[in-house]
Structures are given as C-alpha cells and as structure tokens.
C-alpha cells in the first residue's frame, strides 16, 4: 500500500467514523502450518459501500471472509462488524450477529432436499418469523431475484445461475445490513454472472453494504467500485473506482 493510499483511507476514516460498519485493525491470522494467511491487515468499510476484494489464490481473501463471518478468530488484531467485537464475542451471541449478515457462496450451499421456497423460508424460520409473514415475504423476494415461478423446484432441478439466485434470496430475506458474497459468479457463465452482479448492485442501491470477493476481472473493471487488492496476506491496494490489478 502506498503512503498516498494510507492517507486517503485515514482521511475517509476520520470523516466517516460514525458511519463505519466494518473495521479491521492490524489483523493477522496464522494457521498451524505454513505462512500467515493474513499479516497486519487494516480495512475500514462504511455503511452502504460496495467493495470488491480481489487477489489470487492464497492472497488471504477467504481467510478475510471467514474472519468477518466469525468462522475464524484472528491470531492478533481487532475486528469490529456492526458494533460486534468479533475477537471478544461470546459463542452464544454469534447467531444474533450473523442474522445481520447475508452470505452467498460460490457453491450456493443450498439444502438439497428442500425446495426453493423452503430454502428461502428457512432463513426466516431461524429468526422465528411467523408462518403468515413467511408466506408473504418469500414469494416477494423470489420475485425480486426472478424466480417467482420456481418455488417448488429442488436445487438439482435449477441451473447454476438460478441456484445462486435462490442463495441470494435466502441471504436477502432477513434484510441484512451487510451482504458478503464469496466468489458469487465463480460457477456461472458470463450472462448469469452479470445478472447476479446487477442484483447485487441493486441491493447495494437499497442501502445494504456489499462485499464481493471475486476473480472476475471483467466485472471488477466494468463496475467501477471500490477495489481492495490482496496479495500474500496483505492489502496491496485500496482504490475508489478501482480496477483489477494484474499479477506481476
């Protein structure tokens, strides 16, 4: 990271301190074997931002997402997401924290033995929404992602793009504050990839903070959003309206 970047980021941080929704301060994560996956990473993201996290395999992107999900704890450093201190958070409070996050994975992670409706309704059942409300909310969110007619289908009967839309509907139905998407277009063709990205942009325009981990150079370069580039466990670039930085 250049000194200019650091100054820019520090400036933004001071300006938007009350608006900051994700804070990582000097975060490192070392696994039992091998080099540290993250090495002194600091990152500040404001409410309502759309941020791409890019980097090659082994750059630390997945570790970063796992830390933000509180699937992992850092070896050192400080992480705060939506006011939750993820280093000190108690195990029993993790579910409540995660209910404010929407999560989309590359491999969709749908419950294979349940239909589209049940997969989406499941997220509402977890937060104990009444059946009446579920019956109203699920068709509405399925219509938003363009799957209104497929609520009875099982995941295996859907294309990759459609499965990712179900995952997106499930992530959005509880109106999350932050949407984390880990390679959401990794298993999709270009057409479906663009449709998913448009949906994510639309969700962001409605006020949700969106973090997208991706390898998709074309999408990153076209969308002109903030791009955080990682390499070997550190942030090498953090640019507003940035682009995909090629490997040396």
């Amino acid at each position: 990271m250049t000194e200019k970047d650091r100054k820019r980021r520090r400036g933004r941080r001071t300006a938007d301190l009350g608006n900051e929704i994700i804070t990582l301060e000097n975060v490192s994560k070392a696994y039992a074997t091998g080099a540290p996956a993250l090495n002194g990473v600091s990152l500040h993201i404001n409410r309502g931002e759309f941020v791409f996290i890019v980097g090659d395999s082994g750059s630390g992107k997945s570790t970063l997402i796992k830390l933000l999900l509180r699937e992992l704890t850092p070896t050192s450093g400080y992480i705060n997401v939506m006011g939750y201190d993820l280093v000190k958070i108690k195990h029993r409070k993790i579910p409540k924290f995660r209910r404010n996050l929407g999560i989309v994975f590359q491999d969709f992670r749908l419950l294979k033995d349940r239909n589209v409706y049940e997969n989406v309704a499941f997220a509402q059942r977890i937060i104990q929404v009444s059946n009446k409300e579920i019956k109203r909310n699920v068709p509405s969110i399925l219509a938003t992602v363009g799957l209104a007619g497929k609520y009875k289908a099982k995941p295996r009967q859907l294309s990759g793009g459609e499965q990712q839309r179900v995952a997106l509907a499930r992530a959005l139905i509880n109106r999350p504050t932050i949407l984390l998407a880990d390679e959401p277009t990794g298993n999709l063709d270009p057409k479906n990839s663009w449709e998913i990205m448009k949906l994510l942009e639309q969700i962001n325009e409605n006020g949700t903070t969106v973090l997208v981990v991706t390898h998709n150079r074309e999408i990153v370069n076209s969308m002109q959003k903030r791009v955080v580039t990682m390499k070997k466990g550190i942030i090498v670039s953090d640019e507003e309206k940035g682009g995909y930085i090629d490997e040396d």
Binding site: E71, P95, F97, R98, L101, R109, L111, I126, N174
Partner: peptide, 16 residues
C-alpha cells in the same frame, strides 16, 4: 455436516 454448517452460517442458534 453441510446442513449444520449452512444453518449456522445463516444465524441459527445451537438450540435451533
């Protein structure tokens, strides 16, 4: 394993 992981990612409590 997968089913339990998905439930936990979505924010299900241990009890649920």
């Amino acid at each position: 394993k997968e089913e339990i992981n998905i439930m936990k990612y979505i924010g299900a409590t241990d009890f649920f």
